[in-house]
């Protein structure tokens, strides 16, 4: 006769794995969530290039405008992509309570979702980068530059996820999570989306100077010039800075949600 089966803590990494696997399995069932993430950057990439390519000739852009716009496409593809909507449904359906009734590490509940997010946003960078290649964009930094380009994009995507997760966990309200998309606009448009920083004047130029996306875009664009350590470090620092703020908010919201109120 076999030994009776009994529960035991699974361990932090297995908890993260379990949560991530569940989230990843749900992705093909949430195509309505994935498709816009591809359609929006594709649209903006094509429209921005078509509308502004000639104007860009009068600016100080050192690289081809298609290459200038490709990082914007990446930022549009990955910013705000998270399982926050699914999390808020878990809260509403009671499934989140079911998870809390297990010995799962509470931090793993969020980290597992972020592992899934990283996989997704990394996946989203592939078609956007491929579109760039199809438009004739080339990386002088070689395959490693391509990988760095995709990795930085995905890292930015995950760094940003803290905001929608914080809103999901604080409010438990799907409308509030959907509205969190508004956060995307100042990050994505009050920066060097269309023109380089030197060409931006007035208040917008000043705001762009403090927008971390400016440094992320500069880091990504530097990969079309060569290996420029300074730009990459500033880009990574911008990602890290946003990650620290957004993840602090998200984990604080998680603590509030799982505390036995």
């Amino acid at each position: 006769m076999s030994a009776p089966i009994s529960a035991r803590p699974a361990g932090f990494f297995r908890d993260v794995q379990s949560v991530a696997i569940r989230a990843l399995k749900q992705l093909p069932r949430d195509l309505e969530f994935v498709i816009p993430a591809l359609a929006v950057p594709t649209f903006f990439l094509i429209v921005n290039i078509g509308a502004l390519q000639d104007v860009a000739n009068f600016t100080s852009i050192e690289i081809d405008y298609k290459a200038f716009q490709l990082p914007v496409g990446i930022v549009f593809a990955v910013t705000g992509i998270s399982r926050a909507s699914a999390l808020v449904l878990d809260i509403q359906d009671g499934y989140f309570d079911r998870l809390l009734l297990t010995p799962v590490s509470r931090r793993a509940l969020l980290i597992g979702l972020m592992v899934s997010d990283f996989t997704l946003v990394l996946g989203l960078t592939i078609p956007v980068t491929a579109l760039g290649f199809a438009m004739g964009v080339r990386f002088p930094t070689g395959p490693l530059g391509v990988l760095m380009f995709m990795f930085m994009g995905a890292a930015w995507g995950v760094a940003f996820t803290g905001f929608p997760y914080a809103i999901a966990l604080r409010t438990g309200n799907p409308s509030a999570v959907n509205a969190s998309f508004i956060l995307f606009f100042p990050f994505a448009f009050m920066t060097t989306t269309f023109l380089p920083l030197e060409s931006m004047t007035g208040w917008l130029g000043e705001v762009a100077r403090y927008n971390p996306v400016t440094y992320l875009l500069a880091g990504l664009r530097s990969l079309f010039v060569g290996w420029e350590a300074g730009e990459l470090v500033k880009g990574m620092a911008a990602i890290l800075g946003v990650a620290i703020v957004s993840q602090a908010l998200a984990f604080s919201a998680l603590r509030g949600r799982v505390r036995q109120k």
Binding site: A7, R8, P9, A10, G11, R14, D15, Q17, S18, I21, R22, K25, Q26, R29, D30, A86, D90, D93, G94, Y95, D97, R98, L99, L101, T102, P103, V104
Partner: peptide
């Protein structure tokens, strides 16, 4: 624990749900 409203994820299969539950209990 089976709470008052069946706390299930409608986008999981029954097998996935029970398996995830088992994994979280080690």
């Amino acid at each position: 624990v089976a709470l008052q409203d069946a706390s299930l994820d409608p986008k999981m299969t029954g097998r996935e749900l029970v398996t995830t539950q088992g994994r979280l209990f080690g």
